[in-house]
Amino acid sequence: MSLLKPFFNFWKKEDDNLFDENISIEETRFVVLDTETTGFDYENDRILCIGALVLQNGSIAIPESFEMYIEQDHYDKSTAQIHGILKDFILKRPSESEALQQFLAFLGDSVIIAHHTVFDVTMINKALERNGLPILENKTLDTAYLYKKTLIESHLFERKDHYSLDDLADKFDISKKDRHTALGDAYITAIAFLKIVKKLKEKKEVNLNSLFKL
């Protein structure tokens, strides 16, 4: 027994990082976010807009949503075709530091949900570093990853490596009206997340903890 103990503690320690088993998905405050950026380079590209909303108990309160366009010097004409944010439009916006601080206040210690979360979180963290702000330590979930877990495991059917937000919107019948605006994409991500959880629940019981262990 005594031999086993260190091992037991080792596991216990790991578990501390996760949440109380009793916390349900419904109780949890999720912040679903998306960023529009000047490009995909973590070092050189900049965030043009952060869109985020609060998802709690299956409900999204519009007054509680966050949509902020950020003033940036770096500007890339080629990506403007995607997000439609023109430079002039950005100039009248708050500075990066200001926007980030407001965003941190909005985010709190909520669980972050995004589509390809690594990208958005890294972009935000790089911006936080540049502005001498602490980087994000929030728990994160990724709808691109979670969606794959809803698919049946069968040799009859090839899973794709990447499922875009468009793929999810099509599968779940979510209107793509505001695609490529930060908050519009965050909304699609939020609805997709709810539908993913529903699908996962059909397979087996799901609580907040198990979402991180999939």
């Binding site: 007054p63 949503s65 949509e67 505001d178």
Partner: peptide
Amino acid sequence: MKNTISHRVAD
């Protein structure tokens, strides 16, 4: 606060 989602709802 007017935003993308409220537009969508109004629409």
